[in-house]
Design a protein around this nucleic acid. Structure first.
Lengths: 121, 121
DNA sequence: TATTTTAAGTATAATAATTATATCTATAAA
DNA sequence: TTTATAGATATAATTATTATACTTAAAATA
């Protein structure tokens, strides 16, 4: 990312994208894709450690419920962010990891971490 | 932001932050602060145009409800991201804008937009 | 042989978050 | 006197999330 872009530059840049290619904002659909109470956290956890099993994710994200974790992972898989690898053993083993598309969200988390370092006490 | 950080570098970097300063992750609290169906979108809209009046925000974010917009703005104000300027006229006029703290989320939206440009069709 | 254990879920009911709809405020204009 | 206005608030209905119990299938244990 260009280091020296100002708030005003960005405002103008994104505004022009939105105003010229109307209804084609590159940000809004991404925000919507990551909507829901757990999705962003799940992707983030997989970003810092991957692959992880269902049970490991559940432990790290505690107090998440089975239902929410399973549903969120399913939807993230549909959106192509998460890969699910199932090993047919008993008891079952399933490993989740980020796809390349998912790993490409890294700069987003990096930007968030920079903000957090500056402002979270 | 450093341009050439790899996924592995980031993984290691953030992992070490989390593992050494346990319970002090710079990302998770930010994600939680921006949780809720509309908050991230509201901040984004104020990022590309600001100040905006309540009614303008409502129009842009349509189908948001009065309740959600009012509550989200209130909470964002409490978190120090949004500034509320009230003009005592009739009919009332209230303008919302980002604080410096809010504007500092710009790199996050820039990173999201880069991802969106690459992956959103 | 019958029971227990295990990980990754699913099913159902209860609670919390979000939405829909109606209403309030005060003044100026019709 | 009535209507219009922007920025909300109040309440009830709907949707998302949570809590709890249950399912699966084979291997290990009693």
């Amino acid at each position: 990312m260009k280091q020296t872009m100002s708030y005003e530059e960005f405002q103008e840049k994104v505004s022009s994208i939105i105003l010229t290619e109307s209804g084609n904002c590159p940000v809004t659909p991404v925000i919507q894709m990551l909507q829901g109470k757990w999705k962003l956290q799940i992707v983030y956890e997989l970003c810092i450690r991957s692959p992880m099993r269902f049970g490991e994710l559940k432990k790290i994200l505690k107090p998440i419920t089975n239902t929410m974790l399973a549903n969120a992972l399913k939807e993230l898989e549909v959106d192509g962010l998460v890969h699910r690898e199932q090993y047919n053993e008993i008891p079952p083993r399933v490993e989740y990891s980020l796809t390349e598309k998912g790993k490409d969200l890294l700069p987003v988390f990096y930007a968030i971490s920079q903000w957090g370092i500056k402002y979270v006490p």
